[in-house]
């Protein structure tokens, strides 16, 4: 790539926000040590806890607001509940959550089928976009997949005989 020397003084807005008083800068600029008083501020009103909310054991309560998307459910929910017995500092927290996420994907497909919806995997994966903008690579990947399947079937057939 061709590089051109740049004269900073010709760059629009050069130096307009340079300010020696901005040091130390964000994030410690507005320190007020309010933390010394602990968790004691006047809290916003509490959102009613209408769905199951798992809260970090590094805090005593549920925050004043929270999202109510997709509460824990099913087998993935069991692992999420286990995870929240451990702190954010522990693998006991994150590994069960990652496992739950993977189980959740399977539960999602099952849930779709139970509701009579067969998920359109190619659509969800955005393969239409690949087909439009990246056809060669997509076909390469499909071909590779097909060859792998053919090779594996051939191998196992051969072994059975």
């Amino acid at each position: 790539m061709e590089q051109t020397a740049i004269d900073p003084s010709q760059v629009k807005g050069w130096g307009i926000d340079a300010d020696v008083r901005n040091d130390p800068t964000y994030p410690i600029k507005r320190r007020n040590n309010g933390e010394h008083a602990g968790y004691s501020w006047v809290r916003p009103s509490q959102q009613p806890i209408s769905v199951e909310i798992l809260h970090s054991n590094e805090r005593p309560n549920v925050s004043a607001t929270f999202g109510t998307s997709t509460p824990p459910a099913g087998l993935s929910g069991v692992f999420r509940r286990i995870a929240f017995r451990y702190s954010e500092s522990s693998y006991g927290h994150w590994l069960p959550l990652m496992l739950a996420d993977r189980i959740g994907v399977m539960e999602g497909v099952l849930g779709d089928l139970v509701r009579g919806h067969v998920p359109n995997f190619f659509g969800e994966l955005g393969w239409k976009a690949e087909w439009q903008h990246n056809r060669k690579s997509l076909m390469g990947r499909i071909l590779f997949g097909a060859l792998m399947i053919a090779a594996l079937t051939g191998y196992f057939r051969g072994r059975r005989e």
């Binding site: 600029k29 309010g34 968790y39 916003p44 798992l54 809260h55």
Partner: peptide
């Protein structure tokens, strides 16, 4: 909260229980 007060709006303590 004490973090919002310090303009640490990405670190609010009253918006994420998890």
């Amino acid at each position: 909260c004490v973090f919002c007060e310090q303009e640490l709006y990405g670190n609010c303590h009253e918006s994420n229980p998890e």
